[in-house]
Write a protein that binds this DNA or RNA. Structure first.
Lengths: 142, 142
DNA sequence: ATAGGACCTCGAGCCGCTAGAGGTTCAAGG
DNA sequence: CCTTGAACCTCTAGCGGCTCGAGGTCCTAT
């Protein structure tokens, strides 16, 4: 049985993040000392490590919740788990594609700017005129 | 002089987003009709188009504010503008690199999973054991 | 004159945390 | 056993960048 600070250190998570995960029901409520401090066991450590690693791979907390739920039924087919991972992969691939398009525009914009003064700055021109772009980068974010 | 809805349509922005930009001082307060409705002119349209396009290229609202401020001094050197764009490019490149690493892990994870049951699922194994990963994907997001 | 779409403000909610205030508990050293 | 001070507790608010809803007003076309 160890404290939230120890759990935080062992998983590379910040303490408030652990409390947040508990609050949203991703981590179960742990036992408490008489004084009211949280005390964790190895199971909690495993679960949090799973969550953190999934987060590092870009899974949303909802997707992680799904994975954790699915992993509680060891006899079921793992097709659903693979589907969650596949969705994540597709998502990552889409984001890469979008960012690569942005990278192209930014590079072109910077390369073409041989101006001295703001008034002739190619970067600003491109930002002003959408038509100067090759790709149609519709959605922000990514 | 046209309404916020017209401005929204012409720039592909949602109406509440325009009001939000005004609220945070990115768009100036426009004139109003007697009844209190906003009325915009061509300058507002240009400014909003610039903002939207910059957003599509991934610039933060703060960076856009900087670009807009800089573009008000046409006689200055455009080095600062290029620097903002360069920063953005570096940012995009870093995000691409990170996402490519994630993509690799996800692909490997999915490829290796030939299991039927959840209990043998390779995807879950990898998520449980950080050591199964090739790269050290430290920070989430990206 | 009236209908109804577009506008108004204000406040809350999304994700995934992060930070701060202000107070309590625990563990180590004396 | 007592003191210290680091670590814990709860609660609230904030970040970016919007998005949505409620409840009300205005404008324009018929």
């Amino acid at each position: 049985m160890f404290s939230i600070g120890t759990l935080a250190k062992r998983t590379g998570t910040k303490v408030p993040t652990i409390r947040y995960y508990e609050q949203i029901g991703l981590m179960p409520e742990p036992g408490r000392t008489e004084g009211g401090q949280r005390r964790y066991d190895a199971a909690a450590l495993d679960r949090l490590a799973f969550i953190r690693h999934s987060r590092q791979l870009g899974f949303s907390l909802d997707a992680i919740r799904e994975l954790l739920d699915l992993s509680d039924s060891p006899d079921r087919s793992c097709a659903q788990i693979d589907a969650v991972a596949q969705r994540q992969l597709s998502d990552v691939e889409a984001r890469i594609a979008r960012l690569e398009a942005l990278r192209g525009e930014l590079r072109r914009m910077i390369r073409d700017c041989n101006a001295d003064r703001v008034s002739e700055c190619r970067v600003l021109e491109v930002l002003r005129d959408h038509d100067e772009c090759l790709a149609s980068h519709d959605e922000p974010g990514g």
